[in-house]
């Protein structure tokens, strides 16, 4: 169970940098980051080390910020492991809204972050299949 930060960004040069620059000033460490190509505005998704502090700081700087729960799954760095996790979710008929991975893990198992509307069911099917779900303290 991990917290994700979503920040509203306009689709224009420098808008992502404004967010990372603010987080740097606040001594927040970004662990995972994703944004997708959308026409006029976008949502920057991040996993950071201090989500509540990050939100407070960014909101104070005028950003619109949302914290919500996402599922992080630790995968062994072996061929077929991502496929295995996705198969479990597919069999459970769980729809993934978006998925992205961590930036740097220093020799630790890679973590995939995904978002779903069936949060509890997703956690259940993964646990039943013995897939390790990452907690904030694991990151």
């Amino acid at each position: 169970m991990i917290k994700q930060l979503s920040v509203f960004v306009e689709n224009k040069p420098g808008s992502l940098m404004q967010v990372t620059s603010a987080l740097t000033d606040a001594h927040i460490n970004i662990r995972a980051i994703a944004s997708f190509d959308t026409p006029e505005f976008g949502i920057l998704r991040m996993v950071v080390d201090k989500p509540a502090e990050a939100k407070a700081y960014l909101t104070g700087k005028g950003f619109v910020v949302r914290i919500h729960d996402v599922i992080g799954v630790e995968l062994k760095d072996e061929k077929g492991n991502l496929n295995r996790m996705l198969s479990i979710l597919a069999e459970g008929a769980i729809n993934i809204n978006y998925i992205y991975s961590f930036v740097i893990r220093e020799n630790r198992a890679p973590v995939m972050v995904f978002n779903t509307d069936d949060y509890e069911k997703a956690a259940k099917v993964l646990e039943e299949a013995n897939v390790k779900i990452a907690e904030e303290t694991d990151l």
Partner: peptide, 11 residues
């Protein structure tokens, strides 16, 4: 100006 952060749950 967008002010409601709840809309950031999904595009």
């Amino acid at each position: 100006e967008l002010i409601d952060d709840r809309l950031l749950d999904s595009y």
